[in-house]
Design a protein around this nucleic acid. Structure first.
Ligand SMILES: [Zn+2]
Ligand SMILES: [Zn+2]
Ligand SMILES: [Zn+2]
Ligand SMILES: [Zn+2]
Lengths: 136, 136
DNA sequence: GTCTTCATGAGAATGATTATCGATCACAAT
DNA sequence: ATTGTGATCGATAATCATTCTCATGAAGAC
């Protein structure tokens, strides 16, 4: 068996978890670091990166890549596998379940003889309120 | 109207285009730079980055993000909108058309009042030959 | 309280991508 | 063929997110 290193509850880890629970949208490590500090929570940047990575691997948070390649994290309410519909303007995020897509992915994989297939599926657009205030 | 700067045909741009036409899979700017030079084609790294970006914006090449966040480019044979099924091991890439997914994305967007929605859909797995030589 | 081990964080290191900016080159017009 | 002009090139410096280092601090078990 692979010995999993024991995991401790520290002030920093709690702070990050709570911060993400409060924020509804995706945040980058840099943002989280800055905002936690601004809120009077002393924390190191390296710690933020480490913790987010660990949480992501454990499935406690979801990760996406922003348009410019940064990693952004979010604490989702849906426990299982799901996808996101993100507002390009305000960051508002909806969690999406997609049986159709899951089935499609499996079919395509089989058709091409691929195994062990995972997928990356995210939707980006303008939410109702942001779309409304945009000039056509 | 927005005046588009006129585009010139240079040795470097041709080299990159031909290189990508020859390679069937996704390559990063760094890889392309290195391999072109190794092949006796003097070219600057900045030029490679610039050219790839321009080509991607013009739709001449497709771009994806590798697992570690680098941008990789590929010259696809399919002209219109499509997705990819990429082998995690050897990089072999299949182009995929997915009416189901397009329809699904549109529906989801509408249901949530989102407009101007784009999507990001890629599949990663092990191709037949790579899967075969893997220990179960 | 003591001890063992994991966690932290300041700062250095890494590495991809972008910006600079003078020298070159493509190409249309003469 | 020559020339004029603006696009393009490229060596190198600058940016900037992310990772590494390692001495110090703190959690949890007994
Ligand atoms: Zn919005
Ligand atoms: Zn899915
Ligand atoms: Zn393969
Ligand atoms: Zn599509």
């Amino acid at each position: 068996m692979t010995e999993q290193p024991q995991r401790r509850t520290t002030r920093q880890r709690t702070a990050i978890r709570e911060f993400l629970s409060g924020a509804g949208d995706f945040r980058t490590a840099q943002q989280i670091h800055e905002q936690l500090r601004a809120g009077g929570d002393p924390i190191g940047l390296a710690t933020v990166y480490r913790t987010l990575q660990t949480m992501a691997e454990a499935g406690d948070v979801d990760m996406v890549r922003t348009a410019d390649g940064e990693s952004a994290y979010r604490r989702c309410t849906t426990s299982g596998h799901h996808h996101h519909l993100v507002c390009r303007s305000c960051g508002r995020t909806e969690e999406i379940m997609a049986k159709v897509v899951e089935a499609w992915a499996a079919t395509i994989a089989a058709e091409h003889g691929f195994t062990n297939v995972t997928h990356d599926v995210e939707l980006y657009g303008l939410c109702a309120s942001c779309g409304a205030r945009t000039v056509t």
